[in-house]
């Protein structure tokens, strides 16, 4: 579909088995179409090289629509695009290694609000099984995600100074992890995450690497309340539920309150939480039935006392031993 109007309304349409290099069903840029409203529409079995619906500098309202059985990512917008998704159903999607964000990819200062959506049965050979963000803002309210497989961030992945807000949503049956964030601000409220299927997924893909349910690397602001993470067993060495790593951040702030961590495990450190910084505030949380080797529920590591040695300093010789006991005091 070529578009030459500034406003496009798509209502009660059916896009089936279309193919194109970019935007196999629909592609829009600002100079041709600035606003798109899509509702009561089905996108099914479209294929191609990039995405089913794509665009840049565009505002998209997407409601009461189904996106199913496509072999490329469903929605890909970039460059200050604004998206609103409401009451949509995304299902039965398979994406290749080159397709970050199997359903939605958002980059370069774009915004998206998802209010009321169901995602079911996604198999991605790349990152961000449901949604992948770069330098963009995401707000999710009332999202249900079930049965999602990817290589990292099976449900949500946010990178490069993205802002992510997730409220009143649930995520279940994911592998290897649920969410992955780096260099992003994270706020979550009333989110329920349970039942990793990593153990099943690794049977068919032995090279799959386990991970914490939520990984947050260099996230300056983490505010989490009423989060429930349950039943994630033995998929990583660090932090069965949360892995929080902070480096080169001046004043990171992490607050986790009124949350429940139940029956999570890590192979080594922090059955529920691993954090390498002391700037974590925990208020009113419940930790139950978590296990690890060190820190059954929580393991606090730290950044301090990393010592760098110039090579011309004193040497200590170590002979024929892999573990050396030294009394230095």
């Amino acid at each position: 579909m070529m578009i030459d109007e500034t406003l496009l309304v798509v209502d009660y349409c059916y896009f089936l088995e279309n193919e194109s290099n970019s935007g196999s069903a629909l592609y829009a840029i600002e100079i041709m179409v600035r606003y798109i409203a899509i509702q009561n529409t089905i996108f099914m079995e479209n294929t191609g090289a990039d995405c089913v619906i794509g665009g840049m500098y565009t505002t998209l309202i997407f409601a009461y629509s189904n996106v199913t059985n496509n072999t490329i990512k469903a929605i890909s917008f970039t460059k200050k695009s604004n998206l609103t998704l409401s009451a949509c159903f995304f299902a039965f999607q398979q994406c290749s290694t080159s397709s970050k964000g199997c359903f939605i990819t958002l980059t370069l200062n774009s915004f998206i609000i998802i209010y009321g959506a169901v995602v079911y049965d996604v198999v991605s050979e790349s990152e961000g099984g449901f949604i992948y963000l770069e330098s963009s803002n995401l707000t999710i309210v009332l999202l249900t995600v079930m049965q999602v497989l990817a290589t990292q961030g099976a449900c949500v992945e946010g990178t490069k100074y993205s802002d992510v807000i997730i409220q009143n949503s649930s995520f279940q049956y994911y592998s290897p992890d649920c969410m992955y964030f780096s260099d992003s601000n994270i706020m979550m409220q009333n989110v329920n995450i349970s039942d990793s299927i990593y153990a099943l997924a690794v049977m068919s893909n032995p090279d799959l690497t386990g991970a914490s349910v939520i990984t947050m690397i260099n996230c300056p602001l983490i505010v989490i309340s009423q989060l429930q993470i349950n039943n994630n067993m033995g998929i990583t060495d660090y932090g069965g539920a949360l892995f929080i790593q902070m480096q080169d951040l001046d004043n990171p702030m992490s607050i986790i309150s009124d949350s429940t961590f139940y029956a999570n495990s890590a192979g080594q450190w922090g059955g529920a939480i691993y954090i390498n910084n002391q700037n974590l505030t925990l208020l009113g949380n419940t930790f139950m039935n978590n296990n690890a080797q060190y820190g059954g529920a929580i393991y606090f590591d730290c950044q301090g006392n990393e010592i760098f040695f110039p090579p011309n300093l004193k040497f200590l010789k170590i002979l024929h031993s892999q573990i050396v006991i030294i009394l230095i005091m």
Partner: peptide, 28 residues
């Protein structure tokens, strides 16, 4: 003040509920 509750957590070696390295975390 909100309490953090720890129950039935198991570490096979150290720190059944939690273990920290160097400085005690504030919440401790």
């Amino acid at each position: 003040m909100s309490f953090n509750t720890f129950s039935n957590n198991i570490a096979s070696i150290e720190g059944g509920a939690f273990k920290y390295v160097e400085t005690a975390p504030v919440f401790l």
